[in-house]
Design a protein around this nucleic acid. Structure first.
Lengths: 152, 152
DNA sequence: TAGAATCTCTACTAATTCTATATACTTTGT
DNA sequence: ACAAAGTATATAGAATTAGTAGAGATTCTA
């Protein structure tokens, strides 16, 4: 039930891009440095996100990546599906890579896995990157006020 | 976010053992044949479940495995944790294999992953094998009544 | 218009994890 | 005694994941 490194990096990069949405295209180099993601690996990840229609890119000098639409219109589920494929714990309950299971008709495990899939997508498909930005800023403020408190 | 084959087999074996709880110890051979699980693989799985205190075993001739306690006292989460370890999508939100993440203090991904972990464990840690048996029987009845309907 | 900076594409390698099997050992019933 | 069961550990093979390499295409700017 693990989140892949790829998706983890992708989420971080997406949050970074969302926080800087107004600044236009950012370069891979910058994102990779700030988020400490191996650059070559990140290149592949961002390319995948572009092909999925989540990012736009500009080639050449002064090129870079930016969100294809505003952060409140991109959900976490889109990103994870683009990179890792199905979110469902088993294919027999997957929307995007459905394959019937051996037991087919009366498989009780299927029911439970369906519940789990729905619980996960409830989170990932309602949470937008705008929400993530909001949380990030709140958490940063909280941190700063703590520092202030401690330094008194 | 995938359920491993190991856990899948384990759940099936556990359901089989739960459905036959009153019959005493069952042999690996029987479970493996009925659930179509490679026997040697199943041996390892059941051994792990025994070490986790979920199953009891009897060695020697007429030996076998049985539930260590009644099916309504065993939750799915126990079984999956015994075989696959942490259920959490990332270690920084795991109960059993917690490791702080790099970003530590204000990591927003952590919050989301915590939500997901909780959503998953809500399902896995409330569902018992008694529940699974009930569902299995219901689904079987439904199937039989369908067969009846179709044969009319 | 040359050239540097940037994204694109494909292939490849290395590391890890998952799935399954092998083999020798221990215990128990008859 | 011996056959039938579980125990224990190691290992092999396959699949997936993580990361790297390198040549190519595009664009800005001097």
């Amino acid at each position: 039930m693990k989140l892949s490194k790829k998706s983890d990096y992708a989420l971080r990069a997406m949050i970074y891009l969302s926080l800087n949405y107004q600044k236009g295209a950012l370069q891979i180099k910058e994102i990779s440095a700030k988020e400490r993601i191996p650059q070559k690996f990140l290149e592949n990840i961002l390319l995948t996100l572009r092909k999925a229609g989540i990012l736009n890119s500009k080639m050449g000098l002064k090129g870079g990546y930016e969100l294809a639409r505003s952060p409140d219109l991109i959900i976490l589920g889109d990103v994870i599906r683009a990179l890792d494929g199905a979110i469902a714990p088993v294919n027999c309950v997957s929307q995007i890579s459905y394959k019937p299971c051996a037991e087919e008709v009366n498989c009780v495990i299927r029911d439970v896995m369906m519940d789990i899939r729905n619980a996960i997508t409830d989170v990932l498909d309602t949470m937008t990157f705008a929400d993530m930005c909001k949380r990030a800023k709140e958490s940063l403020e909280k941190k700063e006020s703590n520092i202030l408190t401690y330094s008194i």
